[in-house]
Structure formats: C-alpha cells, structure tokens
Design a protein around this nucleic acid. Structure first.
Length: 783
DNA sequence: CAGACAGCACTTTTT
DNA sequence: GTGCTGTCTG
C-alpha cells in the first residue's frame, strides 16, 4: 500500500495466449476452488467481460474476489502488476493480499491492490507535475484542512461564527466526492456559503493547497480524475497496464470513485471491459458520506452485456436470523432484490427483543447476559455490542469496568488523531518537506517557545509577500531587525535544529529520528513537566509511534503510510467483548450480537430521517440489516424507555423496525414494564409482506404508534419544552397531577427526595443524595 | 503570552 | 453530561 519502491514494469507484453504453452509463473499453493458453491465458482471463472456480483451478507463475496484474483494469476491471464484491485479500507486490502498469498506461490506482488486513495496517491506521485504538485506532496488530514480553511475565512473577513470552517469543509468534501472541480460547482451550491463566497473559497483553497504542495483526501481522487482527463496519454498508459479490475464494496462508491473507475475501464469498449464489482445494495450505509447506491444499481447500464451473479446462500447465520434480516430489509424500495437462504442451522435461537427502563439497565442486562453466556462456555471474543452512535458506548464501558468484564472498543479516537501524534508527525513532515506550512504552524509554539500569534502573523506576512514557505520566511526574518531579540534567537535556534534534523534524516532510521526530534525539541520535557493524567499516556503513545516506525526505512515511506493508512491494528487484548458502531461492524461476524438502543430517534436516528427523509430511513433500515446479519447464532435487540440525550432525559418508544421484524422469530421480554412504563404493544400486528406498503416515513407502523402514544399523552398534560427538544412524557395519563409540595417521592436514579416545586408535569425535587433536580413527573414514584 | 472560565454543540466514518 | 473553542484576564 505505501511502498514507495520504484515500480517494476510488467515483464513482457500480452501473455494471455502464449502463456498456456509456457511454464506458468505461479502455482496454486492449495486447491483454491475447493468448497465454492456453483454461483461462487461461476463468479470466479467468468474472468472476462464486465461482471456484477451481488452478494448478500455472509455469502462469501470476499472469498470470491480473492479466488478470482488467484485464478487470473494461476491461469497466466495477467501479471500481478496488471491487476487493479480496489477496496475502501486498508484493512480490507491487507486481508485480501494476505489471503491471495495463501493461494498462490511464489508470493505475487500485488502492487495495485489497495484503497481508492492509496492507489490514487501512487498514481499522482508518478505524475505530480501534471497536476501542479511535487512528487513529495503532503496529504492533509482533516485537522490541517480545517486550519487552512480558517485562514481563508479570516482573509475574506468571513465571520467564523456564522459560517463555521467545519461546515465549509463538509461542503468541500461533498463537492470533491461528486467529482466537482471549482469550475464545475453549480452556482446554487457555491452561492450558499458565506453569501456567495463559497465558490471563490474553493478556488482559493485549491490554490493554497498547491502552494503548500499538498493534497487533501478528496484531491487524491479528484486530481487523479483531472490527470486522466487532461492527459489522455497518461490514461492510456494505465489502460495498457490494467488488464483486470476488481472492486470490493461497490455499493459504497461515490461519484468521484465511479468516475475514476470508469475512466480506467475505458481502455476497452464497455461490453468487453474486464471489470468485476462486488457489492450489496442492502449494505449501503455510507450515503451520508456521498456514497451512491445508484452506482451499483446501474452497473448493467454502464457496462452493457454485463453478467450478474447473485450470491444468496448464507454461510453465517441461523435461519431465524436470516428471516428477521430479510423481512426487515424487504421494507425498503429500490432494491436489486436478493433473498438470503441457508441450508445450515434450521431455526436456531429466536431473536430476542427486550425493553428496559433506561440505558443503564440496558447495560446492566446485557452485562449479565454476557456473563451468563460466558459461564456457558462462550468466549467473550464471540460477542459484540453494536450501537448506532458512539455516545451509546460509554454506558457499556462503565458497566463493564464495574463488572470487571474485559471489553474492547473499536473505532474510538484513532491513534493518528491524537494530539501528540499529530504534533510529532508535524515535526517529521516539516523535516521531510520544508514547505509544509501547516505543519510549521502547528508546532512553531509546541512546546511553548514564546512565539505567539504576533510573531506568527509577522512570519506569515513575509511568507505571503515573498511567496515563500514559512520556514523560509523564518530564515529571512532572523536576518532583520523586525523581530524582538528574544524571538529572533529562538527562531534562529529552531531553524538550526530543523537543518540538523533534515541532515540526520538521511542517515538515521526514522524511528530514531523521531526520538531525537521529540527529545531535542523539548516536546518530551513538556510532557514530563505536565502533571496531568494524560501526559504519561501521551508519552507512551509517542513510544508506540516510534515503534511503529521501525518497519520503515525512509521518512517519506513512513509519512505516506501514516497519512493513508490510518487504522491501527487494535492490539489483541485477549478475550474481550467488542463494542462498536454498526458502521464499523460491516464485514464482521459474531456468534452473539447485542443490538441496544432500538428506539425511535436513536435508531432509526432522528437526524438521519430529518435530513434525508425516506432515503434516510431506508439507510437506517439497511444499518439494521447489517446489524442483524452480523450474528451467527444469536441476536439480542433491546430498547430503553428512557434515555438521556445531551444530558436531558427523554422517553422513547421502541424502534419502528421492531414492528418490521417477523413476529414468529422474535421473542419479546419486557423488563421495563416492571417500573411502570408502558409495555411493548407487540409488533404482533404482523405486517411482514415483501413490498413496503407505506407511502412515506410517517406511515410506518412504528411511527403511527408513536403518534398515537403522543396523542394519548397530550390529553393528560402539556408537552414539556426543554431547550429545543420536546421532552415526551411517559405518563400514561391516569395520574397527571398526583404530587403535592413537600411530598416524599422516589426516583429510580436519584433516590428519595422531597417535592419543592411543581410546574405542569415537571417537578423540582430536593433529593437526599443527589441534590435539587428538575425531573419529569413520570420518572418518579410516591415515596 | 498563557491560564482560566464561559458558551455551545453534540450521528454514523474512511481515506 | 462532556469536550472543545473562544474570550477574558492576569
């Protein structure tokens, strides 16, 4: 992925026909076709011409891709360097490479197997000058991007409060995802931001990237597309090179990626293109990030004569789990329509749905269940908790810590996103690429050197006037009298240090270089001096960084790796329950899957429905489908009746998706009702037909039930407005004003207390232990 | 220039 | 409830 070694050319020209008579270069290490079912086999053998493999969850699509690559190599249809294999994550690319390696010997060097972004970066570095960059250009992370935008906003006198940099970053991203260069942005789009300045900002932003010799993630694809479009001879080179193209998770591709692929596939007329895409429209869960399900839906139009193979035989889950998942997903429209079936594990355990009082009880219940399964002999590794949003994770973590239950959180704050890592990287970037102004700005005063805004401003002024990088500006400024003596000597020393580091970078291995830099810059001293709890951890992270650099010989190679491969192999912490979001669970599987928080508003997420309406709801439903199909043997769904969102207690009703599950495979338990909440009415209304009978989001059974419930409450007391949020009371209406001032009451969370104020159904209570709090009447009981 | 407090915003996430 | 950012003050 990140190897910067020179690219070996494919030896020899077309080999398809001749090679059969020759000694094949690769041999099969194992019987690689063994165990494939007829559909999978067909998908492997149909190497030529466009092919769409629609693979439902757990049907072995990765297996097909890998075997296909092995087959192409073993048949001598192409050299490894002639195969383009694209994935979305580095993890997927790594796994694929490893698994092909187990099939084929000697080890093929699949240098064009990687993510869209890493492959694009590789191509761009080879032709950097054609897109106005140097081959050693920096790849910016989101942090740098935001800082750059802030500078542009300031330069344009745009109020950052009214027009946040984040928002603009989001728009930029969306434009780039759609493959739009500054000149292509529709006026309606560009006019929206900052009273019409959006378009200009995009131009300025791109210009600025070129001056600092950098590209952001979107650029990697966008500039690649521009490169291909403006330089047909370059494109033709890749047409000649790539004999076979394979794409994983095609349903997640966005417009830019689609254009990128289409350009590369144009080497042959569409009906003959050797392109194979694999995906599952039902698992498209990245629409909010610009993914276009349409790409997969229209593959057959893009490549006339394309073969379509459906993989529907599921090897993962029990029949009950598959039935639940299929029934749920059938409520979506616009599907390519697959039905999963299995010939293993008839029936199996029922899907369980449990209603609990609040998220704390949810964590407690799940904790107990996990321990029980563990006692029965299940490994913690075989269990996972899949949440909709990461804020749901904390409750589980806290509970598991109390229980002493080993857990691991996947996808928390990423290693590379940590402040200290970014600081260290900024030093390294500046050593490798002295014109990296963003890196310079990041570390000029970290650790504190007494170089504040005033000094930086002066440097930036000079840099802009002379059109030179900041580090260069420093060199100039220390020669003048413009700076105060103190700053001047500090800067002079700093420049000298950087020169020294740059000099040593050639001889020292990167992992030693970084240690020297951190020591000599005073960064380590800064952490030592910092007595806060985190600083020790930060030091350890930096050690970890240095350790991770041991595999790299050159600084450049390491930086490429770190900016593109941002995932970190989570150190296996032995047997542990996994906690992660539904999004990051795609592609994984567990014996037992817990799906907490199935409440309307949480899942499906209110925001998703508000922002994207029906499409949003359908994406949420696909997320539910992904969640359920992660389970091999057991799926346990739960919903809390009360949940605190942004510090505010909210009552909730079970997710409408519960009603969309087939009742005959769902077993309902209601623990929440013990506390006087309303019970689960039962999805027993049994509407589980194939087509979605509901015209709009608001006509699904869950929604209607919610409306009915709300109406009930409306009669019993006013809705309470707190902030912008409407707090819905769980009061069923039979005890609307049943409390008096001074009355002793009990609250499940806060304990006993005395009512000191009443406003409608909101009571102010002086709790014995928790102090004075305002709570909804329905959350308390008479003491 | 640096530390302290107040205000606000707060899905999902890879690259 | 929390964490970040931005402003105020020493």
């Amino acid at each position: 992925m990140a190897d910067t070694a020179p690219l070996p050319r494919p030896q020899g020209g077309p080999i398809t026909s001749q090679l059969k008579s020759r000694q094949p270069k690769f041999r099969a290490a194992v019987d690689y076709m063994a165990g494939l079912n007829p559909e999978q086999r067909e998908a492997v053998l149909l190497t030529d011409g466009p092919l769409l493999v629609l693979a439902g969850a757990g049907t072995g699509k990765t297996r097909v891709l890998i075997t296909r690559i092995a087959h192409i190599l073993l048949q001598g249809r192409a050299w490894p360097s002639e195969i383009l294999a694209v994935t979305f994550t580095n993890k997927a690319a790594r796994e694929m490479k490893e698994r092909v390696n187990t099939f084929v010997t000697p080890l093929p060097e699949l240098q064009w197997m990687g993510t869209f972004h890493s492959i694009s970066a590789k191509i761009l570095r080879r032709h950097a000058e054609l897109v106005d960059l140097n081959p050693n250009f920096t790849i910016l992370d989101t942090d740098d991007q935001i800082r750059l935008i802030k500078q542009l906003l300031a330069a344009e006198n745009i109020d950052e409060k009214r027009w946040p940099a984040r928002q603009f970053a989001g728009m930029l991203d969306a434009w780039k995802n759609r493959g739009l260069l500054p000149k292509d942005v529709p006026p309606a789009d560009s006019g929206f931001f900052a009273n019409g300045k959006g378009g200009k900002l995009y131009y300025d932003y791109q210009a600025r990237l070129k001056t600092v010799n950098a590209a952001d993630f979107g650029d990697l694809l966008l500039e690649c597309i521009r490169l291909f479009r403006e330089n047909p001879e370059v494109l033709a080179e890749y047409h000649r090179r790539f004999k076979y193209m394979l794409v994983d998770e095609y349903q997640d591709s966005n417009t830019a990626q689609y254009l990128w692929l289409r350009l590369l596939a144009q080497g042959k007329p569409a009906p003959e293109a050797n392109i194979c895409v694999v995906g599952d429209d039902d698992q498209s869960i990245y629409g909010w990030r610009g993914a276009e399900v349409d790409n997969i839906l229209r593959f057959e139009t893009d490549f006339p004569g394309a073969k379509v193979i459906k993989l529907e035989r599921n090897y993962r889950s029990t029949a009950n789990i598959l039935k639940a998942a299929s029934t749920l997903i059938a409520y979506n429209e616009g599907r390519l329509g697959k039905t999963l079936f299995t010939d293993i594990a008839e029936g199996g355990e029922a899907i369980s749905f449990t209603q609990v009082y609040d998220s704390e009880e949810e964590a407690r219940t799940i904790g107990e269940e996990i321990e029980q399964y563990q006692r029965q002999g299940d490994a913690l590794n075989s269990m996972a908790i899949l949440v909709r949003a990461s804020y749901q994770m904390r409750e589980f973590e806290e509970r598991f810590i109390t229980l002493g239950l080993n857990y691991r959180v996947v996808g928390g704050p990423r290693f590379y996103e940590r402040k200290e890592i970014r600081d260290a990287l900024a030093y390294l970037r500046l050593v490798a690429q002295p014109s990296d102004d963003l890196a310079f700005e990041r570390i000029i005063n970290v650790p504190k050197r007494g170089l504040g805004d005033a000094t930086v401003k002066m440097l930036m002024e000079t840099a802009r006037h002379q059109r030179i990088p900041l580090l260069q500006a420093v060199r100039l400024m220390v020669q003048t009298e413009d700076l105060k003596p103190k700053q001047r000597s500090t800067l002079r020393a700093l420049v000298a240090q950087f020169d020294d580091w740059a000099y040593r970078a050639d001889s020292l291995p990167p992992y030693q270089l970084v240690e020297h830099i951190l020591e000599e810059s005073g960064y380590m001293d800064m952490l030592t001096a910092d007595k806060s709890v985190e600083s020790q951890g930060r030091k350890e992270n930096l050690k970890e960084l240095s350790r991770s650099m041991e595999d790299f010989e050159s600084l450049g190679g390491f930086l490429e790796h770190i900016s593109l491969v941002m995932d970190r192999d989570s150190a296996d912490s032995g047997d542990a329950v996994t906690i992660m979001t539904l999004h990051s669970a795609k592609g994984l599987e567990f014996d037992t899957v817990f799906l907490p928080g199935w409440e309307d508003g949480t899942f499906p997420s209110q925001r998703s429905m508000d922002e994207s309406g029906r499409a949003g709801l359908e994406e949420e439903r696909r997320l539910g489908y992904v969640g359920i199909t992660r389970g091999r043997k057991r799926v346990r769904i739960s919903a809390a009746q009360n949940r605190r969102i942004h510090g505010l207690w909210q009552s909730a009703i079970p997710s409408r998706f519960i009603d969309e599950l087939p009742p005959d495979v769902v077993e309902v338990t209601d623990r929440g009702s013990a506390y006087g909440g309303y019970g689960y009415g039962g999805g027993a209304s049994s509407r589980f037909n194939k087509a979605d009978p509901f015209e709009s989001v608001y006509e699904t059974p869950g929604w209607q039930r919610a409306r009915a419930n709300q109406a009930n409450r409306r009669g019993s007391g006013p809705l309470t407005i707190e902030g912008d949020l409407v707090a819905r009371s769980v009061d069923l209406g039979n005890q609307s004003s049943g409390y008096a001032l001074g009355e002793r009451v009990f609250h499940l969370k806060f304990g006993y207390g005395e009512v000191i104020q009443i406003e409608g159904n909101k009571l102010t209570i002086d709790f014995e232990k928790a102090g004075t709090k305002k709570v909804l009447e329905s959350f308390i009981k008479k003491g």
